[in-house]
Amino acid sequence: MESPYLCPSCGTNRTRFNLIQQVAQSVKKDPHTGEITATIAEDDPLHIPYTGEAYRVQCAVCGLIEAEERFIKTAQRGLQI
């Protein structure tokens, strides 16, 4: 989070962003009603735990939501020009 960002979509925003935390909740649902019937423990051998990003970044100017790495790489390319 300490790296400069540049929006890869609008290409002008370097200062205004929203950091969106992703918190996974493992659940078991009823296949007919869609009702959550149980929460699943992290050590359940039949359930693959979430391994995605802890958060995503949203440009507060144009609304694009992407992985933080994309905003950082765009800023690095923008500084080299």
Rank of each mutant, 00 (worst) to 15 (best):
E53L: 08
E53Y: 05
H32I: 12
F71Y: 05
Y5I: 08
A75P: 03
M1W: 12
R16Q: 11
P4E: 09
A60M: 12
A67I: 09
K73D: 07
Q22I: 13
E53N: 10
G52I: 07
V61T: 10
T15Y: 02
S26A: 09
N18Y: 07
E53V: 09
P45C: 03
I81W: 11
C59L: 04
S3V: 06
N13K: 07
E68Q: 11
G78A: 15
I48K: 15
K29N: 06
A54R: 14
Q22L: 13
D43V: 01
L6C: 02
P31V: 02
T74W: 02
E69L: 10
E53C: 06
P31R: 05
C10T: 11
T51P: 06
L79W: 07
T12D: 08
S3Y: 11
E69R: 10
K29T: 13
H47P: 01
G63R: 05
D43E: 01
Y55T: 10
T33K: 11
V23H: 00
T51V: 13
C7R: 01
E53S: 11
Q22N: 11
S26V: 01
I36G: 06
N13H: 09
G11Y: 04
I48A: 14
R14T: 09
D44H: 10
G63H: 04
V61E: 08
Q22G: 00
E69H: 06
Q76K: 15
V27I: 15
P8M: 03
A38R: 05
I20H: 07
H47R: 06
L79Y: 06
E53Q: 10
D43K: 00
Q76Y: 11
A60F: 14
A24D: 07
Y55I: 08
R77T: 11
V27A: 14
A41E: 12
A75M: 03
F71P: 00
I72W: 01
A41Q: 10
I72G: 00
T12E: 13
I36L: 02
E66V: 01
Y55M: 12
T39K: 15
E68K: 07
Q25E: 08
T37Y: 07
G78N: 12
E53D: 13
E53G: 02
C10N: 13
E42G: 13
L46K: 13
M1V: 15
L79G: 05
T15L: 08
E66N: 09
T12W: 02
P4W: 00
E66M: 04
